[in-house]
């Protein structure tokens, strides 16, 4: 390549960089930023392009997929090393940081004339447009969508949270009565059972004495008739 050609390429790259920079800088939004150290900054954020793009180079089937996420649609972003999770009203987009385009390495938060620069890698969460921070949905179950691979899940299609699992309906309780009392099975339907009467432990003969007595009675009962019949 000639010197002239090199200059032209460099000039083009410079113009492109300026345009990207201007587009990010000119796309300020009101946010609350929580750092991974737990600090919260509020103000006007610049450093994100009007549309973020997630490129999934290796989808399970078909060519590389890409997802465009308008900044205006984002409710919350989580930077959850080593992945980024973006929540919109109806989607959750998950992918590694390196797969996203439109995110500057250094974010700027301006509040009342004071500017704070925070590296994107030091951010834990960004809540957009006055929204409050809320817990990252942990919908691991059967979906694996908090995986490092980038893909999209429609949250309106059925969010089955881990918390919901603990509240799964269970079979009605079938409780049998205390074993020694015998009797049929009792379905309590949630009604606490009455505690069985406490067993007596004093003022009575030892159980084994009574057992021997019973054995003697049974033996007599069995052997006496047989003797008469012979």
């Amino acid at each position: 390549m000639t010197a002239k050609g090199t200059r032209r390429v460099l000039a083009s790259l410079l113009v492109a960089a300026v345009l990207v920079g201007l587009s990010m800088a000119g796309n300020a939004v009101t946010v609350a930023v929580k750092t991974n150290g737990g600090h919260v900054l509020q103000g006007t954020l610049s450093g994100l392009a009007p549309t973020l793009r997630l490129q999934d180079p290796t989808p399970p089937v078909g060519p590389a997929a890409q997802f465009d996420i308008p900044l205006a649609s984002i409710e919350q972003m989580w930077i959850n090393f080593p992945r980024v999770v973006i929540e919109t009203a109806d989607h959750v987009i998950v992918g590694p940081y390196s797969a996203f385009a439109g995110i500057a390495q250094l974010l700027r938060i301006e509040d009342a004339g004071s500017v704070t620069e925070v590296p994107f890698a030091a951010v834990q969460a960004i809540a957009f447009n006055g929204a409050a921070f809320h817990a990252l949905p942990r919908e691991w179950l059967g979906r694996d969508w908090l995986n490092q691979r980038g893909y999209v899940v429609n949250t309106t299609a059925g969010a089955v949270g881990a918390a919901a699992a603990t509240e799964a309906e269970t079979e009605p309780l079938i409780v049998s009565a205390p074993l020694a009392e015998g009797g049929d099975e009792v379905i309590w339907n949630g009604t606490p059972p009455a505690a069985p009467a406490p067993t007596a432990s004093s003022g009575e003969l030892p159980w084994w004495v009574l057992l021997i007595g019973v054995a003697v009675v049974v033996a007599l009962f069995l052997f006496l008739p047989a003797g008469k019949g012979a």
């Binding site: 269970t170 079979e171 009605p172 309780l173 079938i174 409780v175 049998s176 009565a177 205390p178 074993l179 020694a180 009392e181 059972p193 069985p196 067993t199 007596a200 432990s201 009575e204 003969l205 030892p206 159980w207 009574l210």
Partner: peptide, 17 residues
């Protein structure tokens, strides 16, 4: 066993789901 205090059986309850 129910009146003479075989606690290991008399005090056990089974719950099935």
């Amino acid at each position: 066993t129910s009146t003479a205090g075989v606690d290991s059986h008399a005090s056990q309850v089974r719950t099935e789901s």
